[in-house]
Write a protein that binds this DNA or RNA. Structure first.
Lengths: 172, 172
DNA sequence: TTAAGTGCAAAAGTTTTGCACCAAG
DNA sequence: CTTGGTGCAAAACTTTTGCACTTAA
């Protein structure tokens, strides 16, 4: 959990500055419901709604910076865009199962995986920033529709629609 | 390992067709050195060099199709583009460590991780297609340069350059 | 024969950049 | 003050699509 001051300290240590935009973006991530992640575009729209507009380019620049600093983690899910969420200490890392057909995402924690990741990275002599197990799978709905044929490129299983609706609600 | 016939069978079973382009692309992936993966653009250039040009759109379409069929796996490494490689049976899946600064990639196998992934996905009732643990880390070179400050956006550590040179050679 | 696949060119997106201005340290 | 950050608009890329033409089955 960052305070204004600890964020400032960490930035300044590297010759970077604390700006209202950076503060706002981090704060927003810290208030996000657990398990929720945002793309650059979503973040942009969220801020616009609150009329605390930040330009898209600043958002892109900030997301990249914070990812490099290890403050955010960049998720590469089946969806088109990169998504971001707060990075937490290694043993609390969570991982994702994604339906390749409908993008439905399930989050889970599994310490054994995280531990193995730490072991692997130590063995290689690098320094861990983040680790993510992404499992690509097909959900039962999609199987029932006869994956991988039948459905068109835009086919969306109903679970996905439910998940999308749920997210919409969370935002209100 | 697909033969022309087994590929054809699998395609036809879903109402799709075997085309010279699809055959060529799959063949190319099957001949790739172990651990090598390609982006759409790289694949395009590789084919162009051999004057067996396939249009970029066909390449994109084919990569997507084969990923959905489970023939290829889509890797989301730190690099900009998606990369693709042959998908193998689950217990042989390998995972990646990527330096977020220089994109240097280390491949490793770890059955415990794969087993946990299988367990997780079974628990959730979906059907596994692929699982990838991606570890984001910083390599010693990058640390020495004072990560995460100092280096510009384009900074590339020498290890990356070595790795790149090595790849070039593999291609000849 | 006919439905699917290809290539091309155009469109749609996403992400990055140059530059003038502003502001944190 | 001076260096880094922001916003804007333009540029650069990546990926998708419409369409006419080919071709696998």
């Amino acid at each position: 959990m960052y305070t204004k001051n600890s964020l400032k300290a960490e930035l300044n240590a590297k010759g970077w500055r604390l700006t209202p935009q950076r503060q706002l973006i981090l704060q927003l991530f810290q208030n996000l419901p657990k398990g929720r992640h945002l793309s650059a575009e979503e973040l942009f729209e969220l801020l616009e709604k609150r009329s605390e507009g930040i330009s898209l380019s600043t958002i892109y620049r900030t997301l990249k910076l914070m990812t490099r600093m290890g403050i955010l983690r960049e998720l590469e899910l089946a969806e088109v865009h990169k998504h971001y969420e707060l990075n937490t200490a290694a043993p609390n890392h969570h991982h994702h199962i994604v339906c390749t057909q409908c993008n439905m995402t399930i989050e889970f924690e599994n310490n054994m995986i995280t531990k193995q990741a730490i072991k692997q990275v130590e063995k290689s002599g690098l320094e861990l920033i983040d680790c993510q197990l992404t499992i690509y799978a097909i959900c039962p709905q999609a199987i029932r529709q006869g994956f991988p044929a039948v459905m068109s490129n835009n086919w969306v299983c109903s679970r996905a629609i439910n998940a999308a609706n749920k997210l919409e609600k969370d935002e209100e």
